[in-house]
Write a protein that binds this DNA or RNA. Structure first.
Lengths: 164, 164
DNA sequence: CTTGGAAAGTCAACAAGGCTGACGTAAATT
DNA sequence: AATTTACGTCAGCCTTGTTGACTTTCCAAG
């Protein structure tokens, strides 16, 4: 019974099983980013712009600091991306009213349109995968991914998960 | 019953559920690559070297063409990485005996040592995640990832999955 | 009110790792 | 003999990450 996942045998923890999981992550992540990448190519934007747009949409009014923590890049790196999005009128940056040092970020109408296009594409693939695998598999999928995150990232993730 | 995954309701296919899955992929992939990245930094190598090493180890004697297809990059990009690995004595390139145009790739002793270090780190995280989530979750995890791949990548994945 | 520190923005320089295009060589195939 | 395939390489470009240094703005504590 080589594939009977588990029980006392813990067969799902063999190096071979782990290797399969590693390779699955590698190949799946390619699929995960493929559709947005395709849409973005040709525009002046890339994956980094997609991520910024996603999380600004996800948490409208978030600050640069928050976004920095979520994305895990340097402010110089984020700024370059944010700069073009603001200049192109996809993101609006608003000086904070309670703390004027902070900038609160929002998607403009134009930004919302691109966000929708990108996330429609990405969700379509997720939806197909979820549907093919079924609800029980989806639950397992999310459990394993969550366990795989660094604690800091898990906090970010859970904050987003509840917050919205 | 908002979280009762499935049945006729297909609640697991709501945009909200899909968004959670998307963000889980994003944050989990960071964890997935974090440990090898940490090991590699300081050496002259990066994530691209890790991938090359992984798949050469996985399919000893594979050709450059095969590796190209698996990794999905251009030969110029792969060559830069492979060049340094060969020069540094981590990878051995052997002219094909049946078709002398092909180069067959192998890890050297030195290459195997680094591979082991990298994959130990990555497997440790996977193992912890698998253990935390349990065998049923792991099965679902793999099902969803597999469904998320492009068909071409799924072929690559399955070839590797069986082959070894 | 002054001062220290936080939030943000910016300039400059650099590196990794993708990409295209062009070209060369050896070997297999037709 | 001609063509195609597999590989290697040169040159140049782009995105997206990094450090380091510096400025402006502003809140809050002394």
């Amino acid at each position: 019974m080589p594939e009977t996942a588990g029980g006392e045998g813990l067969l799902f923890l063999t190096d071979e099983q782990l290797r399969k999981g590693i390779e699955a992550m590698f190949f799946a992540y390619r699929g995960f980013t493929a559709d947005p990448d395709r849409i973005l190519e040709g525009m002046d934007y890339g994956r980094a712009h997609h991520r910024a747009i996603h999380f600004v949409h996800r948490s409208p009014g978030t600050t640069v600091s928050n976004l920095l923590a979520t994305l895990g890049v340097t402010k110089q790196s984020l700024n370059r991306v944010l700069r073009t999005l603001i200049d192109d009128g996809l993101v609006r940056s608003e000086k904070g009213r309670v703390d004027a040092r902070e900038r609160h970020l929002f998607l403009t109408e134009k930004g919302l349109i691109l966000e929708r296009e990108l996330s429609d594409a990405q969700r379509a693939r997720m939806r197909a995968a979820y549907r093919a695998a079924g609800p029980a598999a989806v639950q397992g999928f999310r459990q394993v991914l969550e366990a795989m995150m660094d604690p800091e990232m898990r906090k970010q993730y859970n904050r987003l998960k509840e917050g919205g």
